[in-house]
Amino acid sequence: MRDNGVDHDERAAERELAQGLIAAGNSGTLLVTGLSGMGKSQLLRAILPVDSGWKAFYFKADAYEAGMPFAAAERLLRQLSQRRPIEQEPDVAANPQRMGALLLDALDRVRTPVFLAIDDAQWIDPQSAIALRFAVQRLIEGRFFVAVASRPMGEPNALVDLVGGFVGRSDQHAELRLEPLSTEQVRAVAARQVHRGVSQRSARALREATGGSPRC
């Protein structure tokens, strides 16, 4: 929510929990789940570490590329490699393990601990998800932290399944489920925006109309 240029964060508790994981400076995983409009992207951007010893990368999958094999992995590889030439073997785009090895090599080249945030993971094409799983699984014991945000999924996703499998193994592996705002939360946010009190009935109607999104 934003009121006269001032951010009102209805996800403060979730953000503080996530930042606590990262502040520990250890390897770890964070899975952020929730319906569209629940604030997953805002949360990921808010917890990107700045001046903390981490090298942070933010990657957002593209719905239009969800059916294109290795589209997400190739874009992420270019982001990681920056100006370095990308040396791909002729058949790399047909082999998730080879693409995963390229991603692993690009991440290994980073001199400082890596924080990788992957947004809209539900749009990662299946081949890229396998390649990312290959790389993440080999990095997670080092100074590496991956935060993945995804909508609830009906189809398997190799990366989301991997990160979900780490949840609960230790204090450094967590899941945050961003639920729709309650009627009272919607009422408070709406009151800030209109600068006057909002009735319970109006707040309930607004919640139903927006699905409880923080962007109502």
Rank of each mutant, 00 (worst) to 15 (best):
D3L: 15
D3G: 12
D3I: 15
N4S: 14
G5L: 11
V6G: 04
E10P: 08
A13T: 12
A18W: 13
Q19H: 10
A24L: 12
A24C: 07
A24R: 15
G28F: 07
V32L: 07
L35W: 03
G37F: 03
G39Y: 09
S41T: 15
Q42V: 03
L43K: 11
L44D: 05
I47V: 14
L48Q: 14
D51I: 00
K55Q: 15
K55R: 15
A56P: 07
A56G: 09
Y58A: 12
K60R: 15
A63C: 08
E65N: 12
A66F: 07
G67Y: 05
M68K: 13
P69I: 04
P69M: 04
F70M: 14
E74V: 00
E74R: 13
R75M: 06
Q79Y: 04
Q79S: 06
L80R: 05
I86L: 04
A93L: 08
A93R: 00
G100S: 03
L102S: 01
L103T: 02
L104S: 01
L107Q: 09
D108Q: 14
D108N: 14
R109M: 12
R111N: 06
V114Q: 09
D119V: 07
P126L: 00
Q127W: 00
S128I: 01
A129S: 13
A129M: 04
F134R: 11
A135K: 08
V136T: 14
Q137F: 00
E141Y: 03
R143A: 10
F144N: 09
A147F: 10
A147S: 11
A149M: 07
G154N: 13
P156T: 10
L159W: 10
L159D: 04
D161N: 14
V163N: 05
V167N: 10
G168Q: 13
S170W: 13
D171E: 14
L176S: 02
L176A: 03
L178T: 04
S182I: 02
S182Q: 07
S182F: 06
Q185L: 11
V186W: 09
V189E: 03
A191G: 02
A191L: 04
V194H: 01
H195N: 05
H195D: 05
R196S: 09
G197T: 02
S202P: 01
A203S: 05
A203K: 10
R204V: 04
L206Y: 04
P214T: 06
P214I: 10
R215L: 15
C216F: 15
C216Q: 03
